[in-house]
Amino acid sequence: MTQKMAITLDVNGTGHEIRVEPRKTLCDALRADCGLTGTNVGCEHGVCGACTVLMDGVPVRSCLMFAVQAQGKALRTVEGLSTGGKLHALQQAFTDNHALQCGFCTSGFLMLAAGTLEQQPDIDDESLREVLSSNLCRCTGYQNILRAVRQVRDAGKAGAR
């Protein structure tokens, strides 16, 4: 046990003042200290992508960094996708296309897809397949996930809330 540090995490536009040991990973801090349990923790060593969040707009694996490193960065988690009870276009597309079964991987895929489409709204199929290949889903077999993300890309409403 080392000295806890007082930090502020900016998550989905809200400041969370928390006290954490420096060894606490960002995903654990989000879940345990900020109470945002939408981000899932799978492998804890950078293999599965379940913990993917957006940091300053780009997808990162939140098990591969410490919470103290995320100070001053704009974080976005799956909780920030929907607005006013209305699902984000990606969430709706995942539902419509049966892109999840147990849902464990889903928040990671959603954040990966959201960050990717915001950066590259016109990403081609092959690149999209390559980007999504970084995350693991043990249920659906990926085709429906691809279909859902492609649908949102084609509708051009990645930024739509």
Partner: peptide
């Protein structure tokens, strides 16, 4: 699967 305790420095 949790990191060991360490002192953190950010120069």
């Amino acid at each position: 699967m949790k990191p060991p305790a360490f002192a953190y420095h950010d120069p």
